[in-house]
Computed example of a mutant assay.
Amino acid sequence: MTDWKRICPLDDIPRLGSRVVRRPGAEDIAIFRNADDEVFALHDKCPHKGGPLSQGIVHGRKVTCPLHGWNIGLEDGHAVAPDEGRCGRFEVKVEGGEVWLGV
């Protein structure tokens, strides 16, 4: 059973943008919102060189790392071929206009 933590109202995350959840002693989590108001949560660290994915460009269900242009799937955290690697993903949902993160 997943425990859920309220993060913020959906409108606090810009469309095609993100919000970072800071976790002392652990990697930060980036919560992304695409143009269709879908939300996704990944470690805020590109699998290539550790770039901050939260500063990348969101397009469709992908984010492009701002450092070297790798595309990362928002649904699964996998790099898009021909690149290889993945970053951790987290459960996230929207209920009543609020974003919830699975912990």
Rank of each mutant, 00 (worst) to 15 (best):
M1N: 10
T2F: 09
D3T: 14
W4E: 10
W4T: 11
I7A: 01
I7Y: 03
P9K: 14
P9D: 15
L10F: 12
D12P: 01
D12H: 13
I13G: 08
P14V: 01
P14I: 01
R15N: 09
R15K: 15
G17A: 07
V20G: 04
V21F: 02
V21P: 05
V21Q: 10
V21M: 03
R22I: 12
R23H: 12
R23I: 14
P24T: 12
A26K: 15
E27P: 09
F32Y: 08
D37G: 13
D37V: 13
E38K: 15
V39W: 05
F40P: 00
A41Q: 10
H43M: 07
K45I: 11
C46V: 02
P47F: 05
K49M: 15
G50L: 10
G50N: 06
G50E: 06
G51P: 08
G51T: 00
P52E: 13
G56Q: 09
I57C: 07
H59I: 06
H59F: 08
R61D: 15
V63L: 03
T64P: 00
T64H: 01
H68D: 10
G69N: 14
W70A: 08
L74I: 03
L74D: 04
E75T: 15
H78N: 14
V80F: 03
V80E: 11
P82F: 06
G85Q: 09
C87M: 02
G88S: 11
F90N: 06
F90V: 05
E91Y: 03
E91F: 04
K93L: 02
V94I: 12
V94L: 05
G96C: 07
G96K: 04
G97V: 13
V103F: 12
